[in-house]
């Protein structure tokens, strides 16, 4: 399998490794990592930096008795269970962790994403919400072949990871595992590849469309 050519970059990976990214953005970055050994390695290095920074922190003494209280709790600990066996579905799944956990209950017997729960966005384009919170929304977006998204810009940050198929925009071709990062400075008009496209998209902050069709689209987006 080919390895991705569009990566989150060091600064976003540091945000992930340090734990500053919200859940939806972390899901997008970690899904890219499942496709990308290089970014997995980078995050391992960044976690090592986290460990070194923790070691260098000025220690703040704990109240007396903290260790004793914890030791007393250990008396009630049962022996550690054996490591959980590999989940049976793992080998058959076409989606890697952590994404697979967020698709629980939505996959059919063949491990494909079921037809229920999708919303119409525009002709040839549907979405399925996975997570929504105060900071943003994470959803799957499915596009038929050759569908164009109205030219748009981003109020906040939008992370899009290709899962199947692909799309292209002014910045290049995006294939499975590639992550596209949209920010307010970016205006683009993605078009899906002939075989269509399935993406994981996380939006933090608003997404603003430019152009007449875009304004219509904006009203949709706000409801999400």
């Amino acid at each position: 399998m080919n390895r991705p050519s569009h990566h989150p970059g060091d600064t976003l990976l540091i945000d992930y490794a340090g734990g500053a990214l919200c859940e939806g953005a972390s899901l997008a970055v970690a899904t890219h990592m499942a496709f990308c050994p290089a970014c997995r390695h980078a995050v391992t290095e960044m976690e090592a930096i986290g460990g070194a920074l923790l070691d260098d922190l000025e220690p703040e003494p704990l109240s007396a008795g903290c260790l004793e209280a914890l030791m007393a709790r250990l008396d009630h600990e049962r022996p550690a269970p054996c490591r959980p066996a590999l989940r049976p579905s793992a080998e058959r799944s076409r989606y890697p962790e952590p994404l697979r956990s967020y698709l629980r209950g939505r996959l059919d017997r063949d491990g494909r994403i079921g037809e229920g729960g999708w919303r119409f966005l525009q002709p040839g384009m549907r979405s399925l919400d996975l997570l929504s919170g105060p900071e943003g929304t994470t959803r799957l977006i499915r596009m038929k072949g050759g569908v164009g998204v109205p030219k748009h810009t981003h109020g906040g940050i939008e992370l899009t990871v290709v899962l199947e198929g692909g799309f292209s925009d002014e910045f290049g071709a995006f294939l499975p595992g590639d992550i596209a990062i949209g920010d307010p400075s970016l205006v683009h008009r993605p078009v899906s590849d002939p075989e269509g496209c399935l993406c994981l998209a996380t939006t933090i902050g608003g997404l603003r469309m430019t152009g007449p069709l875009g304004r219509l689209f904006n009203r949709f987006v706000k409801r999400f």
């Binding site: 919200c22 972390s26 970690a30 496709f35 390695h41 793992a90 962790e97």
Partner: peptide, 17 residues
């Protein structure tokens, strides 16, 4: 919040060279 992480034993992971 949950912390989404890869599973290092996941057979669906793209392996490193």
């Amino acid at each position: 919040e949950q912390r989404p992480e890869i599973d290092p034993d996941d057979p669906a992971l793209v392996p490193e060279p």
